[in-house]
Simulated scan of single mutants.
Amino acid sequence: MTDPVGPAIFVDADACPVKDEVVRVAERHDLVVTFVSNGGLRPSRDPMIRHVVVPKSADAADDWIVENSAAGDIVITSDVPLAARCVEKHVHTLAPTGRPFTPETIGMAVAMRDLKQHLRETGEIRGFNPGFSARDRSAFLSALDLTMRRAVKR
């Protein structure tokens, strides 16, 4: 096995629907993947796949990812506040749907998240998220591959 060169990939792994896809794309680029969760993930024997189990406290996984990622790394998360913290550190950040969080888009993503949270709390809308589709998975694969290529070039 060669030593990995390039960005690290961190996955906010609790309830992440694209863990297998991340591993497949990372293998093609010879990049290390770190799954961060509160537990319940099956460990891998692959030395390029790491698992970090954090305490079950609120934001423990988010805090670990922010503390251990660096500019140029890649983070996969659907958690908008975590994405905002990563974008601030110049970390490439993608949602499992393939939507990139960038300095240009993160403000609107945070505002929409806050608005939807307010509407749920006031009973104006229900707290259901749309289902994860094959189209989302395909968009994610394309976006992740493109993001990895960009990150590796730097």
Rank of each mutant, 00 (worst) to 15 (best):
A26K: 10
L141D: 01
R137W: 12
R154F: 09
E121I: 01
P55N: 12
V33L: 13
A109P: 08
V5D: 13
L144I: 08
S69E: 08
T147Y: 02
F101W: 01
S44H: 06
V54F: 06
V52A: 04
K19E: 04
M1H: 02
I65W: 00
L41C: 11
F128K: 15
R149W: 03
D3Q: 11
I125L: 01
R150A: 14
L94I: 10
A109M: 15
A151N: 06
P55F: 09
E104V: 07
C86W: 05
A143D: 04
G123I: 01
M112Q: 14
R150Q: 12
P100Y: 09
V53W: 06
M108F: 05
W64C: 04
R99K: 15
M108W: 02
S78A: 15
A13K: 05
H118E: 15
V54R: 11
G123T: 04
G107R: 10
V11E: 09
A8F: 10
H51T: 07
T102V: 10
P96R: 05
D12P: 05
D114A: 12
R135E: 06
L82Q: 03
M48S: 13
D136F: 10
D73P: 10
P17F: 04
V23Y: 00
P81Q: 01
M48N: 05
T77E: 02
I74Q: 07
C86L: 08
R120W: 05
D59R: 10
V18Q: 02
V66K: 10
A58D: 12
P96S: 06
R50H: 06
A95L: 02
N129G: 12
E88V: 06
S142D: 15
V25L: 11
N68A: 10
S138F: 07
A109H: 06
A61D: 03
R154I: 14
H90Y: 02
V18I: 09
M48L: 14
D73M: 02
I106G: 09
M108Q: 10
K89F: 03
D59E: 12
R135L: 08
S142A: 15
P130I: 08
V91C: 00
D14T: 12
H29Q: 02
D14N: 02
S57Q: 04
I9N: 07
V75I: 06
L31M: 12
S142L: 15
P4W: 08
D145A: 13
A8E: 14
M108T: 14
P17R: 11
D12V: 07
L115P: 08
I125W: 06
K153N: 11
G72H: 11
P103H: 05
C86Y: 01
I76K: 00
E21R: 05
T97C: 07
P43V: 07
H29C: 05
R126G: 11
V87Q: 01
M148W: 05
P7V: 08
E88S: 07
T34D: 04
A83G: 07
F10P: 03
S37G: 00
R24P: 01
S133P: 07
T93N: 14
H92L: 01
D30V: 14
R137M: 11
A13M: 14
G39M: 03
L146H: 11
A70M: 03
P7W: 03
A60H: 04
S142V: 15
H90D: 15
D20E: 11
T105Q: 06
E67F: 08
V52I: 03
P55H: 15
